[in-house]
């Protein structure tokens, strides 16, 4: 079997070689360290956002006025309703992922397949919601907005009907970077899902790969919790 997922033995004392002092496999430890470094990237982005926001506090867009539309109910004012729903979708897909990991512990192939499929569906739903939000943000409202005496419709990197143009840049970059993570998460989930279907992990005797991809998926959810707070709510 793969050396990356070798069983950890705890017979010898730690730090004398041959055992993992962290009591996890190599692959899982490296996933944790990757997630820590990735969390630093997102922290950097959100801190930069806070810095520019305080720098342009009077011209900054008010998120409640920007993210207030709901699919099929455009033109009404539902501040944060759709973003709240997106958060719910992502948390829900995190729950189905943790259920898949739990089924993997029990070597229950049927349950792993069921819950991983729901996770992939949740991931795609979230990506679709984000596409809707980008579409709405780029196209703007019917009345547009007046910035510096000029009327603008929607937002891009040059100007922004809602306020300072940096708001648009940060929106595209932060939610785009997060959406890219969600997309790669869905792709990795699909690869692992195919492996589960093919019975790779059943032959291996454990479902640790599902656990590792689960760690990544929960991390994506975790980042969204912070983006939701610092970009949308505050």
């Amino acid at each position: 079997m793969s050396a990356h997922t070798a069983e950890v033995s705890t017979e010898k004392p730690s730090w004398f070689g041959g055992t993992s002092p962290y009591n996890v496999s190599y692959g899982k430890l490296m996933m944790w360290f990757f997630l820590v470094s990735d969390a630093f990237s997102f922290s950097g982005l959100l801190i930069a956002y806070g810095f520019q926001r305080f720098n342009h506090v009077t011209e900054w867009a008010v998120p409640d006025n920007v993210f207030n539309s709901f699919p099929f109910l455009e033109g009404n004012n539902y501040p944060m309703a759709y973003v709240g729903l997106m958060t719910f979708i992502l948390i829900m897909s995190s729950v189905t992922m943790v259920l898949a990991v739990e089924a993997g512990h029990r070597n229950d192939k049927k349950d792993v397949i069921k819950w991983m499929l729901w996770t992939i569906i949740g991931g795609f739903t979230f990506l679709g919601s984000q596409a809707y939000e980008w579409y709405h943000f780029i196209h703007g409202t019917a009345t547009g907005g007046i910035v510096d005496g000029m009327q603008y419709f929607g937002a891009n990197l040059e100007h922004n009907q809602y306020g300072h143009k940096l708001f648009g840049s940060f929106f595209f970059f932060i939610t785009g970077f997060h959406g890219f993570h969600v997309f790669s998460g869905v792709v990795i989930n699909i690869i692992i899902f195919i492996n589960v279907l093919a019975g790779t992990y059943e032959r291996r005797g454990h479902y640790e790969m599902v656990e590792k991809v689960g760690l990544y998926w929960h991390f994506v959810d975790l980042v969204w919790v912070f983006v939701f707070t610092f970009f949308y709510l505050l």
């Binding site: 002092p21 962290y22 996890v24 944790w32 360290f33 995190s94 929960h218 919790v225 912070f226």
Partner: peptide, 21 residues
């Protein structure tokens, strides 16, 4: 964030070295 990391990512079940790292 604490609940996601501790419960869903099982960090609370890991050894202390890993939690601190």
């Amino acid at each position: 964030a604490g609940f996601i990391v501790a419960a869903y990512m099982h960090l609370k079940d890991e050894v202390k070295n890993l939690i601190l790292s």
